[in-house]
């Protein structure tokens, strides 16, 4: 093993290829076609226009950067929707402690087993930032915010409907047993 550890790949070879590929994806055209969907998605999840515009741009710049992946997609809208969703989640993580974050507001819904259906979901993405792992957050957002069935969510994420259902169930159980502050406040209203 010691020998293996001392062996090295020439740095120039191990680092990224300097070769650049010609841009085959017309990002501007895609923006003109799908930008409204991405912008709307970002507004829904982020809750304000400034952040939504910023993340919308970021989504298309990612598309430019990762265009090899994009070329394998049959539906550009699906691909962009997924990128927009995950990018928004990242954004929410980065701003979660800011005082202007609307998450601090209590939500006026009864704390019941069907809470998530009632929340339906203004600010859901922001409210669950610290409460679930990435995969579960995606399941919750696609299901509760977008109204996708478990099967549709599973198809989008490449997992089974049962796995989606399980993730949501586990999350609901967890917040029932250890309710976040905003749920407790809501319950007291």
């Amino acid at each position: 093993m010691a020998h293996a550890l001392t062996a090295t790949i020439p740095k120039a070879q191990a680092s990224h290829s300097a070769t650049r590929t010609r841009c085959l994806v017309d990002v501007e055209a895609l923006y003109r076609r799908y930008g409204d969907m991405v912008l709307s998605r970002c507004r829904t999840l982020l809750g304000n226009d400034a952040d939504a515009a910023e993340i919308c741009q970021e989504v298309f710049l990612k598309l430019h950067r990762y265009q090899d992946s994009f070329r394998g997609e049959s539906k550009p809208s699906t691909y962009l929707y997924k990128i927009a969703t995950t990018t928004c989640l990242n954004k929410l993580r980065s701003r979660k402690r800011r005082p202007e974050d609307p998450v601090a507001e209590p939500i006026v819904v009864p704390y019941t087993d069907t809470m998530l259906s009632h929340v339906a979901l203004r600010d859901l993405a922001a409210r669950i930032t610290d409460l679930a792992d990435e995969g579960t957050k995606l399941c919750l957002i696609y299901h509760y915010v977008d109204g996708m069935t478990h099967a549709e969510v599973g198809t989008l994420l490449g997992i089974t409907a049962g796995a989606v259902r399980k993730r949501i169930r586990v999350f609901r159980n967890s917040i029932r047993n250890n309710p976040p502050a905003w749920l407790v406040e809501a319950n007291e209203l």
Binding site: H16, S17, A18, T19, R20, T21, R22, C23, L24, V25, D26, V27, E28, A29, Y31, R32, G35, A53, Q57, F60, L61, H64, R65, Y66, Q67, D68, S69
Partner: peptide
């Protein structure tokens, strides 16, 4: 309007695809 960053990206070559 289309954001300038997106117009510029369209005019530029794609970054090395390892970044993805």
């Amino acid at each position: 309007p289309v954001p300038e960053a997106i117009r510029n990206a369209s005019a530029a070559p794609a970054p090395a695809n390892n970044n993805r």
